[in-house]
Amino acid sequence: MELNFAELKKGGFMKHVQKDYFAVRLRVAGGNLSLEQLKIIQGVAEKYGQGYVHLTTRQGMEIPFIHFKDIENVRRELIDGGVNLGVCGGTVRGVMACHGTAMCPHGLIDAKALSREIDAAYFAAPVPGKFKIAVTGCPRSCAKPQENDFGFEGAVVPEFHQHDCIGCGVCAEVCPADAIEMRDNVPEIDRSKCTNCGDCVASCPTAAWQAGERGVKVWAGGRIGRNPKLGEVVIDFLPVHKIPRVIEASLEFFREHGKTKERFGKVIERIGIDRYKEVLEHAAQGDS
């Protein structure tokens, strides 16, 4: 039986130290696996593995100790059961997410739903090096977009409705950017300081501060590995519906300028952050 290692790796099979054994990586979007999927995974791990699964650092799951003779059966049983295989190498990897508005009181965007949409559109897309995306619901950054090649952080533009305000000043007290000041018992916001974190909206006891447009802060170029570096903010506020445009522009930028196995952040450093930001700006322009 011929083994094509490159093909196996692309399909989410990784060679073990032990001769003839592989770990199979599963496709997980936003950290969710249904109980039905877990039953299938349990069945495969019992039948072909060594009775355990490995949880990866990026909300993924792997079944170790699959013998190479079983690879086709494992692949078929997983896919027939609704569990797709993960990827390795130069591809868009599994998309991470926190709970977001699905259940977290701090969430500003539906991070899980967004991660599923990004996964559906871009998972396994070929690029020069690995490309990891994370979606987090708010600046607390539980899904760590700063550590990923590309990431989104929930943001909201606060709107003030004076007739509901009781002048308590909680918004001014909690604002982490010191963008709100109380003048004659009325909050005054300095939009140039506001980071769209939504803390004023979340803490207002009378709903005088309300959520306006929702969007994301965009992070790019983060990585861990040998030369760790946090990503940087490349767009302060982007409406949610424009997210696909900046992903596509970034993948295109990566394909055009990246060398094999190079990380996205390195490409940005080499080509220049200003040039990359121009590409993003151009992609984000327009109303539709």
Binding site: C168, E173, A202, S203, A207
Partner: peptide
């Protein structure tokens, strides 16, 4: 207290359907 308490308790009380009439430092 100020800080976390004033950030969370009043809005949570509103979230439960009650009305915050007055809040002052």
């Amino acid at each position: 207290n100020g800080g976390e308490a004033v950030k969370n308790v009043p809005r949570s009380v509103r979230g439960e359907g009650h009305k915050v009439l007055f809040l002052e430092k």
